[in-house]
Write a protein that binds this DNA or RNA. Structure first.
Lengths: 234, 234
DNA sequence: AAAATGTGTTGTGTATACAAAGTGTATTCT
DNA sequence: AGAATACACTTTGTATACACAACACATTTT
């Protein structure tokens, strides 16, 4: 690989691996291993770490190796407090400011998402979904809202990877509903309908939240009492 | 100075200098000059630049020196779009979550602000005000809201330094009104009154906005027509 | 004379070597 | 045997040297 592309390649790899939880939350990152893997010296690798720390992908601790940013219970709560508000504002501004080229890009991202829904695994799905929402962020184009929004997107992808594996038909149905939301979002943005866009933002998060609530507190199994054997010692 | 404190000192200096516009928006930063000034080699200095880039203090461009983050007209507009919403949410959460020790810290910051109002210059005032609002951010303690809020605070300080110089009695009166807002904010947080806190957030921004509008579009001078001489060629 | 290109200088990007801090293990002492 | 300490090893932080890219100015060419 040309020397010039190695640093961007490392950055892209880490972003992708963290978003898809290929590198799991809290996991240690090995500096020298990544140096070897990407043919870089420690200096540029550490600069990438610092960039990713600023973006919220990794945590940098003094005299200690970098870790993939954690996903604790408190962050999950914070997430659902902040997300509807921020995403509502983003979509509102997107409806107000989007230019045709961006709408085209959004359509492309949605096509890719639909394709991932059909043919690809959870990781590709999460990345495609992430790309879709990133574009809405670009459309809004507000310097002050974007940092928080981008952090939300990082953890949205990672939360999705842990909680949003469609093992049941109901979950699969949710995914296709999410896809329909995307279509409606595109329409609202193209029409410049801010109120509709804001409403869709809220709907979209409610879908995610219900999905996760269902995962964390699944329906009780419909099994007669006493049918679980208790072989392990108390 | 002990070698261990040099890097934090550089970080603190740059933050302060940028907030007070001692280093002006868009100004170039000289790497080697700062190395000499703080007794550091280029490596740690560049790491500090990257940190500040992530925090929104500095812009880092490829193969080009770092610049103090710009304050353009578009950012001013973006600012007043995002600030009321974000700060409303922050104060709401602060009222919900603040612990007594934090309320004490906030009181201390307000004392410092009042003192700066009496004895100190614009820079100290801006820093004290900044500190006050930073603490409300800590109180809210929401991982996702904080990045945007911190960026807003950076530019709030810098906007204040350019637009909020109390050259008239009216402006001075505004400053003391801001100080009363702070007192009311402390009371609302201590009482856990979320609605009041949210309302105060909005009031506080309106004060800032009116101040700036007045600066950008000052009252017409009360001078008879024709009294301006036109000596320069058309 | 104007434009374009070459060269020198400045400053950024990367590699490597060295220093310091942290961690784990083994040994010793109680 | 258990605990504490010392020592070795691993990993992070910093400094310096080198490579490369960008900019400015001068020179040349049309």
């Amino acid at each position: 690989m040309p020397a010039k592309d190695r640093k961007p390649a490392l950055l892209a790899y880490l972003k992708r691996a963290i978003l898809t939880t290929e590198l799991r939350p809290g996991e240690d990152l090995d500096e020298v291993a990544l140096c070897a893997k990407f043919g870089l010296s420690r200096t540029p690798v550490r600069e990438v770490f610092r960039d990713l720390d600023g973006l919220g992908f990794v945590d940098l601790r003094e005299n200690r190796g970098p870790r993939v940013a954690d996903l604790s219970h408190t962050t999950l709560r914070d997430f659902f407090l902040a997300a509807p508000m921020v995403y509502g504002a983003i979509l509102r501004l997107a409806a107000r400011n989007a230019i045709p080229a961006q709408v085209e890009a959004l359509r492309g991202a949605q096509d890719a998402f639909r394709a991932a829904l059909r043919n690809k695994g959870a990781a590709e799905r999460a990345l495609a979904n992430n790309r879709f929402h990133e574009i809405t962020g670009d459309m809004a184009g507000n310097t002050y809202l974007l940092p928080s929004f981008k952090r939300l997107l990082i953890d949205h992808a990672r939360i999705g990877m842990t909680f949003y594996q469609p093992q049941t038909n109901e979950m699969a149905a949710n995914l296709s509903e999410a896809s329909h939301h995307h279509d409606a979002i595109i329409a609202a943005i193209e029409a410049g309908d801010e109120a509709a866009a804001a409403r869709l933002a809220e709907d979209h998060w409610n879908l995610s939240r219900h999905q996760i609530e269902r995962f964390v507190m699944p329906k009780a199994l419909d099994v007669p009492m006493g049918s679980f054997s208790r072989s392990s010692p108390a």
